[in-house]
Every structure is written in C-alpha cells, then in structure tokens.
Design a protein around this nucleic acid. Structure first.
Length: 479
RNA sequence: GGCGCGGUCGCCAAGUGGUAAGGCAAGGGUCUGCAAAACCCUUAACGGCGGUUCGAUUCCGCCCCGCGCCUCCA
C-alpha cells in the first residue's frame, strides 16, 4: 500500500497523512445549513467527504467522524418566522430531506450527526473560556471575538489583515464592533426572534462557534482532519481556528481539506441563472442516484467540477459498463481452472486503485484502475481464456472498489422509490417482466418472430432492455 | 489588488523531463431470424510566446482565457 498523501490547506502542500493515534482518525466535516434543500454543489463536497471517509476505512483506520447540521442562522430564523414556525419545526423537513439525499447518494452516516441547537450549553462554555482569556468584548448584548488578540489569524486562508480597511463593503454589520473583521460569538436577540437564555445572556450563537464547540466535544482539542467547501476556508474555518486555539492553546486541526466548487455548464450555479439544482430536480428528470454519485465523485476534489447534463449521461453509461461487467462475471460460465497471469493482473488493479486514492484521493485514477481491469477481463472472456477459478478474485476486487465508490449495486429504482419518485417503469414488477420474457422466448422457439418482436417492443417502451446472449439466454435490465 | 483552482482528443478527465491513462461519444467489427444489448478494435489531444535542457505537455518567466474566495455561500 502506498503512503497516504493529503493536500493540507494549512501548509499549502500535499503531505503524508499520519493521524495522532495510530489506526484512528478523528475527522470533522462541515455539513449543511438546513434552511432549504441542499443543492448539487453541496453534495459535491459531501460526496468528497464520503470518499475520504470510505477510503480511510478501507485502509483500516477506525473512524471517529462528526458531521454537523447547522440548524440556527439568519436565514433559518427569517424563513421560520415567515412560515410561522419555530426553528426546530422549520428545519426538521430539511434535515430529513438531507438524510434522504445522503441515502440516495450512498453517503455513509458518520459516527455522530450533531445539531447546533442541541449544543448551546457547549458553545456557552467555550465562549466563557474565551471571555476568561480576554479574547472577547461585549457590544449591545452581543459578544465579539477580538481578532487582533490572536497573532496567527489568517494562517489558513493566507489573508493578510494589515491591508484590510473597514470599508463600505466590509463594515456592514449593524452591531458595534471594534474592528471590521471581528466576528460575533454570541448575538443579542432582535425583537421577536428566537433566543436562548444563558449564563452569558440571552441570544443565539454566532455561526462559527458551533463547529468549534461540537468538534472538540466529540473529538478532543486537536482533530486529525477538518473539511468543507473551499468557500468555508474563509472566514468560517479561519474563525474556528481563532476561537478554538485561543481557548485551548493547541492546534485545532492538523489537516484541513477543502473541496473546490462545482460549476454548471461552465457558469457559477445560482438561482438567478436558472442552473440551480437539487437532487430532487435531477431525479425528477430521470437521472439515477448512482450516476450522480459517480459524476460528483470522479473528478478529483481539488478541481472545479463542471457539472453538465452531458456529463451526467456519461456517468450513467460509465456505471452501466461497470455493472454489465459485474453481471457478466456473475452469470458467465467459464472453463474450470485459473488463467495464467490473471492473478497478477488483478493485483495490478489493486495497486493502481490504491495508488490513485492514496495520492490525495485521486478518484479519476482509481476509477481508471477498475476500467482497465474490466477491459482486460472482457478481452479474456471474449477469447475464451477466462477461467472460473478467477471469478471470485475479480469479484473481490470489484467489491473492494465499491467500498469506496459505491455505485455497483443495482438499486437505483429502489432508492428513487424510497424517495417518492416512481420511475416510468416502476409499474412493471420483476415477475411480470420475467413472464413476458418467457412468452417471447416461447414465440422465438416457434419462429413466431412477429409476436417475439411485439413483446420486445412492448418491454422497450416500458424501459426494459433485453439482452439476447449467444447461448440463447436472455438477460433484462431496466433502463 | 491579495490568495487559490484550472486551460490535455468532439465531451469529461488522468499523467509524465524522452512524444500521453481511463470514461462517454463517433466509426468499424463480433454476436443475432432481424434488431437491440453486450463485448472488442480504431481514430484523434497537451492555450500562446520565450527560457533551461541532448530533449518539455511535464521545470522557470511572461502573456492570454475560464472560475472561485477576500464576513455568514459547499
């Protein structure tokens, strides 16, 4: 196995990954703000986090992974008020939707899902700790963090504070702050707004404090890995560092990893451009969850991903190729014994796969390793050289591959159904299809091709593709 | 302006100081009652100009182009 190398935003370099405790990784990943349905850009990041998580597990690390759900912020408060709901009720729907989406994309559950509103006391404690060290100052009922007190401010995002002036763009906060860059740890309640009554006064948490408080509560004062979208590097993660390290005097996270953003057809995704998509939008158009997962996951995470419908179709077909191969392996009848060289060929696939992912999670390379093996094995099968004795080891490789990529299982229809999308062909059950296939086979035997073709057409119209094999067997699949 | 990502075949996307993976598409085959599906094969690419070098797509410089962050957006 290759040494795992990860790109660390903190150092700006790709470094060997060595966790604090051998064999164990403590990871915190920034999750969604549940004010609305998350969009495909969010899921690009979440799929990246999932690939990272799965790869580390594959390499034998025990994972302690925490992902947060931000369920209190300005938008949530505003939207909930507009809907006449309390924020817990308002966010519940989007929390559920997020969990559903994760299931659809085969994003594994972390060891802990944590919600900001469940951890107000932890945040209050952390703020008190900062107060004790005079990193804070009050202003009209709010509590601010004094950035000038933290010498390393800017070390993550490489922002140089000296050049920054409190200009019109920056100084738009209506609260009193000493310096434009200072941020709120605790916000005083506005009239009619939801607030918590606490030892540091009534109010609600600032954006950044939740992650510091929750990460340290579950993972200790120094994390191994902290990740999120690239836009979070500043100010969110920078502020997390300032808060946490001021409070503990220890490094907050050792490896910071940031996923680049996703573009849509080469443009920034935005509601105004009409190129803004949630998973629901894509599933309603008939795209498969597995295709979206591959589409979002196969571009290395530090590259901007240009999402296009053409690309999604390509991913759909790529998934098909892999699944077709798995089926061929499963259903094929091969001569007994082992093919010379096949074990070595499979070993090479493992090596290439591992090298790809070990190199800063290069998913494109790992994927190519699988496709290379697929092609070579297909050639061997076509030539009649493939042997039954190699089936199991190729299957083992595929399942190894799929422990990270998670696209091989043919369960898209079930997933969509679980989400409430009945795909066009959902009306036809397996038994019904088998019956029609049998009828067609009978017709073919009687050389009644008109009937056989009529059934074939009927099935095709309902999204069922038939595959007539050489030996007369028929395999079918849903489009 | 500062910081960052990128410009490789029609499209997506790896990679290397000695002329370049993989996927999709296209074309051609195998198979088939015909087809489809599946599988195989083939084609074709390194933004521009300099520099370093025996040799650069790969290193350096400049330029052009796309995109992001610079206070609450993954």
């Amino acid at each position: 196995m290759a040494e795992i190398q990860l790109h660390n935003t903190l150092s700006g370099k790709t470094e060997p990954f060595v966790p604090q405790e051998p064999g164990e990784v403590r990871m915190y990943t920034c999750g969604p703000t549940v004010y609305d349905y998350a969009h495909i850009g969010n899921y690009r990041t979440f799929v990246f986090q999932d690939l990272l998580r799965r790869f580390l597990k594959l390499r034998g690390f025990k994972l302690k992974h925490v992902m947060n759900l931000t369920d209190v912020d300005d938008r949530i408060i505003a939207n909930a008020a507009a809907a006449g709901k309390n924020i817990r009720d308002y966010t519940e729907k989007f929390v559920q939707a997020f969990f559903d989406d994760c299931k659809a994309l085969s994003i594994e559950a972390p060891e802990h899902w944590v919600r900001a509103t469940d951890h107000i006391p932890d945040m209050v404690q952390l703020i008190q700790k900062l107060q004790g060290k005079t990193f804070t100052y009050p202003g009209e009922g709010s509590i601010y963090y004094r950035i000038t007190k933290f010498p390393n401010y800017g070390k993550l995002s490489k922002i140089d504070l000296t050049g920054i002036q409190a200009g019109a763009r920056v100084d738009n906060d209506r609260y009193e702050k000493e310096s434009a860059r200072d941020f709120a740890l605790w916000k005083a309640p506005k009239p009619g707004e939801h607030f918590w009554e606490t030892a540091i006064g009534p109010g609600r948490p600032g954006w950044h404090i939740e992650c510091s408080a929750m990460a340290m509560k579950y993972l200790g004062e120094t994390l191994d890995i902290h990740t999120g979208g690239i836009d979070l590097a500043f100010p969110h993660h920078e502020n997390e560092i300032a808060q946490s390290e001021a409070a503990t005097g220890k490094p907050f996270a050792r490896y910071w990893m940031h996923a680049e953003h996703l573009l849509v057809e080469g443009e920034k995704m935005s509601k105004s451009l009409g190129n803004f998509f949630t998973l629901r939008d894509l599933f309603a158009k008939g795209y498969k969850p597995s295709a979206l997962r591959l589409c979002l996951g196969s571009t290395p995470y530090r590259r901007q991903l240009n999402f296009t419908f053409n690309g999604l179709t390509q991913a759909t077909n790529s998934v098909e190729r892999l699944r077709n191969f798995a089926d061929r392996l499963q259903q094929g009848k091969f001569p007994a014994g082992k093919q010379e060289g096949m074990s070595a060929r499979i070993f090479k696939a493992y090596v290439d796969f591992d090298h790809g992912l070990s190199d800063d999670l290069n998913a494109a390379r790992a994927l190519a390793a699988a496709f290379d093996l697929v092609r070579d094995a297909n050639i061997a099968m076509d030539k009649g050289e493939f042997r039954q004795g190699d089936v199991a080891s190729v299957q083992q490789f595929l399942s190894f591959f799929d422990r990270v990529f998670a696209v091989l299982e043919d369960n898209d229809a079930q997933k969509l159904q679980a989400l409430g999308y009945s795909s066009a062909q959902a009306g036809l059950g397996d038994a019904e299809i088998e019956k029609l296939v049998a009828e067609r086979n009978a017709a073919k035997k009687n050389r009644d091709f008109a009937t056989a073709d009529r059934i074939r057409k009927e099935l095709a119209d309902r999204g069922i593709i038939l595959e007539d094999a050489k030996d007369g067997t028929v395999r079918w699949k849903r489009k």
